[in-house]
Design a protein around this nucleic acid. Structure first.
Lengths: 207, 207
DNA sequence: CCTACCGATCGGTAGG
DNA sequence: CCTACCGATCGGTAGG
């Protein structure tokens, strides 16, 4: 309403970033990450952009589609990250390290996306939900496979590879919960540390 | 409505478990864990119990209070678990192992509570939210302190103890996401494995 | 424990 | 991009 009265008073449209599909998603990312999908009203997203709720529909077709776009893109990028990280790497130790570093780094640099994927995938309608979960399972299985290979080569010593793969991945997800880009630790350092943690975790016993 | 017509037809009240504060919380645990706090309507909880929404208010005072009770009790039990696990244990390696085993075990045996604590604490009104988060921070700091002690004694070799403490705890949380009590792995085995993972993670490098 | 009902808010549409 | 408005649903209350 400030904007409306400004406009009415001096005839000059108020300065405002142009609203685009991109800026709508950006606002949704922040609010979904903070309050969750069901905890965020489209009115809140519109307010963040300085427009009214119905105007959002010039950029999106529904709230579900907004969530779907965020989750689809995020999970695809995670998988692309993984493939790029291990491409042309033969050594199984280095494959695991790079896969974990890439995953941890992504969770430090894309915190909002990570929080939404991990909390709000259950809010997604079918069939999108099953599709997203299939991509995530594929990623977990790929990590498990690396661990199994390492076991077979004698490089690792893990009794139950899927316990380790789930644990390692979830450990990386934790980064999204506390990482502060303006804090003392840099995202790259943290990612390297978690890569090291993963290798320690799968190595032979400490005794 | 089935119940109403049954009642009307034969004059005998239909069999139904008596609704209590406990059974309301039990239904809320299941639904909040499945759909989240904002994704669950009081109507859903009432439906699970075979009553109407207003009747819930004979057992609870509000939806918020229902969430608050669940989160308060859960976080207090986690802390009590931790204190019991390390009581009278001096060896720093054993302290860490027992603390992690207890935490992982709780997440396997109280999956719904764990999911709700980790997802819906943000739905809690102040001041309860800050109180809950203070208990969780206390727990994380206590784990971090054990790691720091292990470092000082030369038993552990962790560059950044809080990276390790967060990672270890979140690794245990993952158990709540996938553990299936009717599956092949028993909760106690999983907990012991995660205890072992934690010790490997804080031990000296694998090289 | 119920029915009846409250104001508030939700996602979304009509029409300009 | 807006105003006006829709039916549905929300948590919760009144009164019995």
């Amino acid at each position: 309403m400030t904007r409306v009265s400004d406009h009415a008073r001096d005839g000059v449209p108020p300065h405002r970033e142009p609203v685009t599909e991109r800026s709508v998603r950006e606002a949704a990312l922040t609010l979904f990450a903070e309050r969750g999908y069901h905890g965020t009203a489209l009115r809140d997203i519109a307010g963040e952009l300085g427009i009214r709720t119905p105007s959002l529909y010039n950029h999106i077709s529904s709230k579900q589609e907004l969530l779907r776009g965020i989750l689809r893109e995020t999970t695809e990028l995670v998988w692309a990250d993984f493939e790029a990280a291990i491409a042309d790497i033969d050594d199984v130790i280095e494959r695991l390290r790079r896969a974990v570093v890439a995953y941890a780094l992504r969770h430090a640099t894309h915190r909002r996306e990570a929080l939404i994927v991990n909390r709000d995938v259950a809010c997604l309608d079918e069939p999108a939900r099953s599709e997203i979960m299939a991509v995530r399972r594929r990623h977990e299985r790929a990590i498990r496979q690396i661990i199994a290979e390492g076991n077979a080569q004698g490089a690792f010593a893990v009794q139950t590879p899927f316990l380790a793969s789930f644990g390692i991945l979830e450990m990386c997800v934790s980064v999204a919960r506390w990482f502060d880009p303006s804090g003392p630790l840099r995202a790259e350092e943290i990612a390297l540390d978690y890569g090291e943690f993963a290798l320690r975790l799968v190595a032979a016993s400490h005794r």
